[in-house]
Design a protein around this nucleic acid. Structure first.
Lengths: 354, 354
DNA sequence: GATTCAGTCTGAATCGATACAGAGAGGTGC
DNA sequence: GCACCTCTCTGTATCGATTCAGACTGAATC
């Protein structure tokens, strides 16, 4: 049995309170006694106050949870998620707070339980999919949280950090439209919960599953509507996951028809890279060239020459954690929109004349 | 005030125990009553048993700590660390366990405190530097741990997962020696706690600060000793940090002397990439060519054409977590050595004739 | 009809600490 | 000499649950 605080108290012949004070409030007792207590503790092998008991009594834990609604182990393979985590960890570090990464089991009930059982003082919710249930649990627990996904029904007092998805998407689509592209495919991950890989039909961007996807597709559509190409003329393609492989699989066959798209706008850089992979693998090679765009501007995008929209990933994480760790007095300041920038590289070009 | 378990008990008119059982041991009460309790809880907005109180009583937390002795936010920039984390997270996920990432403040006392205060059931200690103090704290707390850095005084019962650093280093050095290189520089991060960037002198590999560095340098030395080049003839170069920039800064001027090294063996891929950066920047370009090797085989190594030693990073993380989460009955099985492989790419070649 | 047993539910003890009001001792000011 | 502080330290209540031995109920067994 590990010794408890009581054991130390007994050994020194003081009260429990005093030993507690020796650790947590050195100003509440004489230096001499404090030394004596700390020595005794060392001798007994007392490792300091039990963190759990302390948290229970104090009412806070000293760590924040980070929630990925996709698989936790997947998150580590996503460069954007990693940048986000880097930002969070920097802020946590400065604040002396630990980060609890909570894996969510596939079954909803278990996942709820996981969020209910997380010993944290608040959550950074990095959500890629439908998340309402998680936020419900967090609110029920009375814990503060910061979300990064746009939500349709966000309360005014809800802390949030994100970008203007729609405007950002529009900017890259406008670039592509400006190059003359009119036969265009839009590629996104999990457009609908159960859609198969490949082309899918939606009556509009608003029908997409993820809020993020909704925003981006709407932005893409905006830009093309402006040049007279309406939603029905755009080909929407679904990928089963945010990975190069999934993207490549999704666009397989896309270019084999009589009037293949001349451009593919992807909802993420990862997907765009997968499209480039698929194009590189084609027997015909990349002739005629197909313009491809991504979203996020992850490090790999630069070396791949991918045209994309940059969003400050690390800063997003940093700000999310800071909003959580020291909330602004002004509620309006809890709602942060970060700037984005169109980054034009070699992966987009004018429509080839056929 | 959030309702407590007691409040639910009062509302339904049953004892606290029964409500507790409704959540944790459904077989201990009738289904009807359980439903009634759960309904009442929902109505009252009771979010389920308080995780901290539960942990205190049960004696375990349901999460494992991951300890980086370097900065936590740095870890996210190191591809090897990320792969390791991916492995850990996969295992944690399968086990239904959360991961607590504990940032360590720069001051030793604060860092101790951080380890003492972490609410976890055990630690995966991913250590790049001197770590004894952390292990001391963990042992004092009576918590299990798995370490990944070779330790000179490891107890037989200590769980460990790693590679044969020395043999692995020797294999890549032997490859370089086999190509005829005799004027060789060894580059490592933080060779000594306070060494400046650039060449440093050590009387032997055993004097290096980090256990990992000790092993790798010794392996390098082994291979060259075999072809008649002894330690004193090797140039040891210190980098201030494991980053491309630090490596580039460390080798600045290294090739300006009358008899520059024809090869640089780096202690990590990151450092090796930094050396390549530095070489690419030289006015003379890469002529005569300098052979460069790394260590780890991170993803970037392949695209950079870097000769290196592969070690299974993700598996290292996975196994570390598994050793922690379900310890093998057999103590010997708690000591795992993973295989490594020499990966020869374009960054090494025969000594140029001058 | 007594015994046994499974199925439900309860009560008290416990996990390991912290908070806070207050008790004593010793020193100051007037 | 008395009131008033300040400095240390103590005792009790409390944080929010889980555990476990046992009480009760009703049905089955002999």
């Amino acid at each position: 049995m590990k010794p408890t605080l009581q054991a130390v108290a007994d050994a020194v012949g003081v009260s429990r309170s005093t030993v507690s004070n020796a650790y947590s409030r050195p100003d509440q007792l004489s230096t001499a006694l404090r030394e004596r207590i700390l020595d005794a503790a060392r001798q007994l092998g007392y490792p300091g106050p039990n963190p759990t008991a302390r948290s229970l009594r104090r009412g806070f834990v000293g760590s924040i949870g980070v929630l990925f609604t996709s698989q936790l182990s997947y998150a580590f393979t996503d460069p954007f998620a990693i940048s986000f985590l880097t930002g969070v960890s920097g802020a946590a570090e400065r604040h002396g707070t630990s980060m609890l990464l909570v894996p969510l089991p596939p079954a909803q009930t278990d996942a709820r339980r996981a969020v209910e059982n997380a010993a944290v003082d608040g959550f950074c919710v990095y959500c890629v999919a439908d998340e309402e249930w998680a936020l419900d649990v967090i609110r029920a627990r009375g814990l503060p949280y910061v979300s990064t996904a746009p939500r349709d029904d966000a309360g005014a007092d809800e802390r949030y950090v994100g970008i203007d998805e729609r405007a950002a998407a529009r900017s890259v689509a406008a670039h592509v439209a400006g190059l003359g592209h009119r036969r265009v495919a839009l590629l996104a991950d999990a457009v609908l919960p159960d859609a198969p890989a490949g082309p899918v039909t939606l009556s509009g961007a608003h029908e997409a599953w993820h809020p993020t996807t909704r925003g981006r597709l709407a932005g893409f559509a905006d830009a093309f509507a402006e040049v007279g190409v309406d939603w029905a003329e755009l080909t929407l393609v679904n990928a089963l996951g945010n990975s190069r492989q999934a993207a490549a699989a999704a666009v397989a066959g896309l270019f084999d028809g009589p009037v293949p798209p001349t451009a593919v706008l992807a909802g993420s850089d990862i997907l765009a890279l997968g499209v480039l992979d698929a194009l590189a693998q084609r027997p015909g090679g990349t002739n005629p060239p197909v313009s491809v765009t991504g979203f996020d501007d992850i490090p790999e995008a630069a070396s791949a020459g991918l045209t994309t929209v940059r969003q400050p990933a690390e800063e997003k994480g940093r700000i999310a954690a800071e909003l959580l760790l020291d909330p602004p007095a002004d509620a309006a300041a809890g709602h942060v929109l970060l700037p984005t920038a169109l980054v034009v590289r070699a992966s987009t070009g004018p429509v080839p004349r056929s």
